[in-house]
């Protein structure tokens, strides 16, 4: 199995990520209101909550796409929100996958996969190409290396986007509602890839609306509302017995109980 690409794993004694009282404001509006939590190595955290609760913003603060106004974020103990941070270096270590894939339309699949390893990590092109092919085989898209994004289905695009992030061998992977714009039957093929990564020990922070997925994959669930962590815990406990009324109400919106008597001509 030595030729199958693996996620990068380093022995660590400290949390990979540590967020401490993170505050994010847009003008007067506070989007993140003192968020603190640790992410241990190999831990998978699902971030859930209603829209506008700050989930995506939270992910974007971790790789500096959103500057924060208070608190701090540490990656491997190093404060990355300090002044003078070279974000390009940090982002090379923190992978991110977007809801809308954001493959580069002017490059074919291989071009998308090689851009960052070759330009940023200065990996030898042949070596990077080889790694890309192995990843493509793993996600079942080896035959699409020369395809352009336009020629791929949503599910295929998203799998490529995941592989593109993995090509940089990130220490943490941020997944921002990666199945939200997919047709239902394509959700599975993408989530299966993520499940496999979790099994291999990839550290991940996952924003999702797929409750069943969150329950299956996460070591811990963070429930956000109004820019605060309202509740957190193990998925089984959280989904079966949420402690807060707010979380209960949120989870209720995902279940339907039949309120009507059966109608129609059936006798």
């Amino acid at each position: 199995m030595s030729d199958t690409p693996q996620v990068l794993r380093l022995p660590k004694s400290q949390p990979v990520l540590r967020l401490d009282s993170v505050v994010k404001r847009y003008g007067e509006r506070t989007v993140l209101d003192g968020i603190s939590f640790d992410v241990a190595e190999r831990e998978v955290i699902a971030v859930i909550g209603p829209s506008g609760s700050g989930k995506s913003t939270l992910l974007r603060t971790v790789n500096g796409l959103e500057p924060i106004q208070g608190g701090s974020i540490r990656l491997d103990g190093e404060e990355i929100t300090a002044k003078g941070t070279d974000w390009s270096k940090i982002r090379a270590r923190v992978g991110m996958v977007f809801q809308s894939y954001e493959l580069f339309p002017h490059l074919d699949v291989m071009g998308n996969l090689l851009l960052a390893p070759v330009r940023v990590a200065h990996t030898d092109k042949a070596e990077a190409r080889e790694r890309a092919m192995r990843w493509l085989e793993r996600v079942g898209l080896a035959d699409r290396a020369d395809a352009y994004p336009k020629e791929l289905s949503g599910g295929q695009k998203q799998r490529i986007a995941i592989v593109r992030a993995l090509m940089m061998q990130p220490e943490v992977l941020l997944l921002d509602e990666i199945t939200a714009s997919l047709d239902p039957e394509m959700v599975r093929e993408v989530l299966d890839v993520v499940l496999e990564l979790a099994e291999e020990g990839m550290t991940m922070l996952i924003v999702t609306h797929e409750m069943a997925f969150a329950r299956a994959i996460a070591d811990r669930v963070l429930f956000l509302d109004g820019g605060k962590i309202v509740e957190q815990g193990e998925p089984e406990a959280f989904f079966t017995h949420p402690q807060t009324e707010r979380a209960q109400r949120f989870l209720d919106t995902f279940s339907f109980t039949k309120a009507r008597e059966p109608q129609g001509l059936a006798r």
């Binding site: 809308s100 954001e102 960052a116 330009r119």
Partner: peptide, 25 residues
């Protein structure tokens, strides 16, 4: 702009982002 963000998120610096992602498009 999310194309730019996507390039930045991969670790490309702003000049590389312009050169390899924004300008060609």
């Amino acid at each position: 702009s999310i194309q730019t963000q996507s390039a930045l998120a991969l670790g490309l610096n702003p000049v590389q982002t312009l050169r390899h992602v924004v300008l060609p498009q």
